[in-house]
Design a protein around this nucleic acid. Structure first.
Lengths: 228, 228
DNA sequence: AGAAATTTGTTCGTATGTATA
DNA sequence: TTATACATACGAACAAATTTC
């Protein structure tokens, strides 16, 4: 046999196989734990170890008394996982800011081309709320939301997933960065102008205006945002 | 109690906590399964379910007879996971090509600024081998390697991880795409010129030249590479 | 080198809570 | 309501690999 494969790996591979073959689609009920155990010649505990792995990846959900079902809502789990891995890797600050700019710049290009009327309406609403916000806490909230919605409006799932993971990973870092930028600029006016340019550029499909806003935004980050 | 948290989730959270607190760093040995079980008031089976989840995420590795350890190299598992998730998401072809261009364009910008003499030497060597390659199989190999090394030379871990996952996920797709492009262009000469421009641009820190090569490359993909 | 202790790998049996017909 | 099927969870046992003395 020469089976170096662990028992639980058999289970994971079997489920993956069924998914890839299309025999399991979202909503499908998996074979019961007992029947999987019998089929793969492993114990039920090993089956459970394998199913747990898939469950934690967001690929299936378990319902006690009913069964295990293919779920396919891994966005959340994926985000969680990516952030934790980035944390473990301990990536340098320079790379972090660089990557954020890369994602946002790419998203902006897509969004200017592709934003729907609904996207535009939402962005305008957020800009308005940011404008009327009275506390720094509120401004931080809508600042974040504007950036997030620009990425969402790119309608590119790769960009969206990466951005979500990144933001989750960097949340605290970004908050303190905004603080330093606002302090450096003495008030938020200049910063808000950059948001306005980004959004108006999207509304008018004017890439140059949007990019000018983004470059200004990250220019301030470079100028005032660094930690030391 | 009203504990909705499942037993294995306790374990995952505990390990994460230890990592975040810095009590576990890459290479550390975890508490034994039995001691974790006792500490968290769960059975050893539940502990194992939790550890399996972490193991499959690439966060830890198990050695029979020795113990469980926080992993040193997450990259491989991370790549594998990302690829599978991308597969499951079933992302549209348009988004795929778009994302690839985004990553490679961003990497090129970084690499032109940041490539080390070793990076440049390696790229030049690969270009030479691509030039001298006699079979289409060999050309495909060095084509891939040049793109990969350009990303590696960006020295941005986010970009590198994403590219690796992406390539793994899209490997077959990219191979057949190159085939169609070469057939469309009738020979590889034009395609090789784009590689040459990218690499020479990096050697001479000439972003414009590099970008011209990349744009040409993806232009051919857009023109001939689509599936239908 | 070898024996003992430790630790993970795997299995089985049992009890319990939940969903479904 | 009852009976059945199912996941959840625990504990005990032994095998296999590693470490320690």
């Amino acid at each position: 046999m020469a089976e170096n494969e662990k028992a639980y790996e058999k289970v994971v591979e079997r489920i993956k196989q069924l998914v890839v073959e299309g025999k399991l689609v979202p909503g499908s009920r998996l074979p019961t734990e007992r029947s999987l155990a019998e089929e793969l010649n492993v114990s039920r505990n090993s089956v459970r170890e394998g199913l747990r792995v898939m469950q934690n990846m967001g690929i299936l959900s378990s319902q006690q008394g009913s069964g295990n079902y293919i779920a396919l809502n891994f966005d959340q789990k994926m985000t969680e996982l990516l952030s934790f891995m980035y944390f473990l890797k301990g990536i340098e600050e320079e790379q972090v800011t660089e990557f954020r700019l890369i994602i946002e710049e790419a998203a902006l290009r897509c969004t200017v081309k592709r934003a729907t009327p609904e996207d535009k309406k939402e962005l305008l609403a957020l800009l308005d709320r940011l404008d009327k916000a009275r506390s720094e806490e509120e401004r931080l909230k809508y600042d974040k939301k504007i950036h997030e919605n620009i990425v969402l409006a790119s309608h590119n799932d790769f960009l969206i997933t990466n951005y979500n993971a990144f933001i989750r990973f960097m949340d605290k870092h970004i908050e303190s960065m905004r603080e330093r930028v606002v302090r450096g600029l003495e008030d938020n006016h200049k910063l808000e102008v950059t948001h306005r340019e980004m959004v108006y550029g999207i509304l008018q499909s004017d890439l140059r205006l949007s990019m000018h806003g983004l470059e200004g935004h990250f220019g301030y980050i470079e100028q005032y945002g660094s930690q030391d």
